[in-house]
């Protein structure tokens, strides 16, 4: 999860990689919608599939002013259907031990609406969905962090999961091997947007600093715990009680996403986890296609209509062979942070 603010953009990588895209067998483009307006924008820009979530803790982008109530969800499913677009509902946090009613309600609602599927990670909830709504297609969320074929097969054999969204910790050869090994389960990978450097669904850094949890509350580096303090010429960004970064005069003060901060250790001081980079895998779309990946996904339900419009259009053009996918997407200015990377898809990232 990532919610760094948009600052400037500067490409740090852009290497062409080889495999061409085949426009006759396009990959499915899965796009985010944080609001009904963004949903319409994604449809107009060429999304094949759109994912959204309910306005509560059941989804991993539980940010103020975002997401759909049940009526809006019903209209969204209808709108998608009218345009031949598949609607998916993300129910991708872990249900509360004391009261899982809103999570079950979200699953029931998705089934009643005959959504194209749900994207879930909680084993108890996936088990509930499989038993209660056997016709509701199940996609395994990236938050389940299924990073090997055995894990994917577990979810397929036990609960009939049809598609898995792979964690952003795998290299392209590993993705190819996994995809071949898990047939008939389809694989989907993130190609654009925020970049988690930790295995998704396995990170409680924010809970340690703020008490609010990515897994339980659907927040990462929550805005409610962010402060900026001026210390002479230096702008200090804090999350909870912890300094995440210090910016000299003239530096752009970015959002204090915990794992993108600057810290010190006996070995080195700086971005110990990750530079404030975003993911752009446009240049390796062909390699992902060749790896057997069924669908590519854009992160960013928290992003505005301009982001959705431009990123979705650019990726759709690349997938359709209308633009040269071996070059970076031209949407770098929409990235969060200070540049972009192909992340773990290239092994040297590790």
């Amino acid at each position: 999860m990532d919610n760094a603010v948009h600052t400037s953009g500067a490409s740090t990588q852009g290497t062409a990689s080889g495999a061409p895209l085949d426009p006759d067998h396009p990959m499915e483009l899965v796009c985010p919608a944080g609001t009904p307006a963004a949903l319409q924008t994604a449809i107009d820009a060429g999304a094949h599939t759109i994912y959204f979530g309910f306005r509560n803790r059941t989804n991993a982008r539980n940010f103020p002013g975002l997401n759909f109530n049940e009526e809006e969800a019903a209209r969204a499913v209808e709108t998608c259907r009218k345009h031949g677009v598949k609607p998916l509902i993300a129910i991708n946090t872990y249900a509360d031990a004391e009261d899982d009613a809103i999570w079950k309600r979200a699953v029931d609602c998705a089934a009643d609406l005959k959504a194209g599927g749900i994207i879930a990670c909680d084993i108890g909830l996936v088990s509930y969905a499989a038993k209660t709504h056997p016709d509701l297609p199940l996609h395994l969320s990236v938050q389940a962090s299924a990073s090997n074929p055995e894990a994917v097969k577990f979810y397929h054999e036990a609960y009939g999961v049809r598609r898995v969204v792979l964690p952003r910790v795998m290299s392209v050869p590993e993705i190819a091997e996994l995809t071949a090994a898990v047939t008939p389960v389809e694989t989907e990978v993130f190609v654009f947007g925020g970049l988690c450097v930790m295995a998704e669904g396995r990170c409680s850094l924010s809970s340690y600093a703020t008490g609010l949890s990515p897994n339980k509350d659907g927040v990462c580096s929550p805005a409610s715990h962010v402060r900026y303090e001026q210390d002479g010429d230096v702008m200090v960004s804090l999350l909870g009680d912890f300094t995440i970064n210090r910016f000299d005069a003239g530096e752009t003060a970015g959002y204090p996403t915990l794992c993108k901060g600057r810290f010190s250790s006996d070995a080195r001081t700086g971005h110990l986890f990750e530079d404030p980079m975003s993911l752009d895998a446009t240049t390796i779309l062909g390699d992902l296609r060749k790896a057997g990946v069924k669908a590519v996904k854009v992160e960013g339900r928290q992003r505005g209509k301009a982001y959705v419009a431009q990123v979705v259009r650019s990726l759709r053009d690349a997938i359709d062979g209308k633009t040269d996918a071996s070059r970076s997407s031209g949407t770098t200015h929409l990235m969060e942070g200070l540049g972009h990377t192909e992340g773990a898809y290239r092994r040297d990232w590790r």
Partner: peptide, 21 residues
């Protein structure tokens, strides 16, 4: 000490200028 996160990248090695491999 509570483990809080795990990554495919080794941040410990990276701090010393190495990679996981």
């Amino acid at each position: 000490k509570a483990p809080l996160a795990i990554s495919a990248r080794c941040h410990h090695a990276r701090a010393y200028g190495f990679t996981k491999d």
